[in-house]
């Protein structure tokens, strides 16, 4: 059990192995471990963020849907109002047209009746003149008695 040069060999070997470990083993393995740790932490943070963003988006979607519903209701109301308006307009237009046509027809009928009366009157007066002429057997000067005749016609 003697101490000898083996010690020195072992010291050198130990320092060499330490140096090699420091150079070629430790940084690579620990680096990979730390990188993985970072990746996992980043992944978790990203997950949290995504979750938050999702809930924000969900809230946004909800408000959008509510808005859209409101808008749809509004549009529907407007449309039905417009429809009622158009319907009423059409109805009143139709009534007015009916009235107009009715009046026109009435006027035409009246006109026609007046014209017929006039013609009738003329014919009656002519007949009266002719009758009178024949009765008197005497020519009545139409010119002279125009005034008289007119009165007569009016009476008829």
């Amino acid at each position: 059990m003697s101490l000898n040069v083996t010690i020195i060999i072992q010291i050198l070997a130990f320092l060499a192995v330490c140096w090699l470990t420091m150079k070629y083993i430790w940084p690579q393995i620990l680096g990979a471990m730390e990188e993985r740790e970072k990746k996992i932490a980043d992944g978790l943070a990203a997950g949290d963020r995504a979750e938050k963003e999702l809930s924000q988006a969900q809230a946004k979607v909800d408000t959008l849907i509510v808005d859209a519903k409101d808008q749809a209701i509004h549009i529907k109301d407007q449309a039905s109002q417009m429809a009622t308006k158009i319907k009423d307009q059409a109805k009143s237009d139709a009534l007015a047209e009916k009235e107009r046509q009715l009046n026109a027809a009435k006027a035409e009928i009246e006109q026609e009746a007046n014209r017929a009366k006039e013609a009738l009157r003329q014919q009656v007066s002519a007949l009266a003149i002719a009758g009178t002429e024949q009765l008197l057997s005497k020519e009545v000067d139409a010119q002279k008695h125009a005034e008289l005749l007119d009165d007569l016609i009016k009476e008829i």
Partner: peptide
């Protein structure tokens, strides 16, 4: 050294 170096060379930060 050999055993650890073998792993250190292929060390991945993905799934080990």
């Amino acid at each position: 050294l050999w055993f650890f170096r073998r792993v250190a060379k292929k060390a991945t930060s993905g799934v080990p």
